[in-house]
């Protein structure tokens, strides 16, 4: 079952467009939405939440249609974003007073517990918070209304390594309840190496893949070898290729074919998500 179903969604701006993306986010799993800055991740998330209106396509969340059933949907969705649009002059206590009445399942005890755990002072004003603290506050809010679907847009970008680890552990805890789903958009792919089940990769406004993380890492391979192995046909097999005077390193999306092609003449390694993102975003040959 899918928590989110995006169908043929498009949005055009003067210098950038999201182009006909269809994407399913599986219920009960953590899906990492990766892509370089400006690839379309945030636009995609904003369209899911109704902040940006798509020019074409449809979105279903938790079995209901957006935007016609958005009020019921958003009761069950928590949002954590590095874009902080809270009222800057309000204290955390007042901001909570604004937010809490909108949620039928608001849990005050849980909220106070998270505020304590994240060391957030209720009397502090939003404008006095660091980026990391704002994300902690957004997380406390999102977790206090029993959200089944947590949508996180670059949540770790302003966090120190200690809280980043804590956050990932917290997300793992949330996933103990199999009804919960997390969509985690980031360009810091190391976070997803640890926790993601699925990876959706968006590049230049298009969906490159949306697959089980382990399958992606099995399918792709980093090939390293000498320059003598490369000719025009071989170069065309690479998604991205980095050449130097001493050899090459490139990404292929068919490990089996690469094994047959290079045999023992080249070294095949499992790529990281960052490798996949880097070579796909760069494309073509790069000369170092």
């Amino acid at each position: 079952m899918n928590a989110i179903e995006v169908r043929n969604i498009s949005k055009s701006y003067s210098q950038f467009s999201v182009d006909n993306i269809s994407l399913d986010i599986k219920k009960g799993y953590i899906t990492g939405l990766i892509g370089p800055n400006g690839a379309g991740k945030s636009t995609l998330i904003k369209m899911m939440l109704g902040i940006v209106r798509p020019s074409a396509g449809s979105i279903r969340m938790l079995g209901a249609e957006m935007p016609s059933e958005e009020i019921a949907i958003k009761q069950r969705v928590g949002i954590v974003s590095d874009d902080c649009f809270y009222y800057e002059h309000l204290s955390l206590k007042d901001m909570k007073k604004v937010i809490a009445p909108f949620y039928t399942k608001w849990n005050e005890t849980k909220f106070n517990r998270y505020m304590e755990q994240f060391e957030l002072s209720p009397t502090k004003k939003i404008k006095e918070l660091s980026k990391g603290m704002k994300i902690k506050f957004a997380l406390a809010i999102a977790l206090s209304h029993e959200a089944e679907l947590l949508i996180m847009d670059e949540p770790t970008s302003g966090l120190d390594p200690v809280f980043r680890r804590e956050l990932l552990d917290l997300l793992a805890d949330i996933m103990q309840d199999e009804r919960n789903t997390i969509l985690f958009s980031t360009h810091i792919t190391t976070d997803l190496d640890r926790i993601a089940d699925y990876i959706a990769f968006v590049n230049r406004g298009k969906l490159v893949f949306n697959d089980v993380k382990d399958d992606v890492l099995d399918r792709y391979a980093i090939v390293k070898g000498g320059q003598d192995l490369l000719d025009a046909d071989i170069r065309a097999k690479f998604i991205g290729l980095r050449e130097s005077s001493v050899g090459f390193e490139g990404l292929v999306d068919d490990r089996k074919q690469a094994q047959e092609l290079f045999g023992s003449y080249a070294v095949l390694e499992t790529p990281s998500l960052e490798d996949i993102m880097y070579y796909t975003a760069k494309g073509g040959p790069i000369y170092a």
């Binding site: 939440l49 109704g50 902040i51 935007p67 958005e70 009020i71 019921a72 958003k74 009761q75 949002i79 874009d83 902080c84 649009f85 809270y86 009222y87 800057e88 937010i99 909108f102 949620y103």
Partner: peptide, 19 residues
């Protein structure tokens, strides 16, 4: 003025309400 100072409409619309 208070609602647009920090693009707060973008925050409000993420809560259970419609435009």
């Amino acid at each position: 003025g208070a609602d647009v100072k920090n693009d707060n409409h973008a925050f409000l619309i993420t809560m259970p309400m419609n435009r």
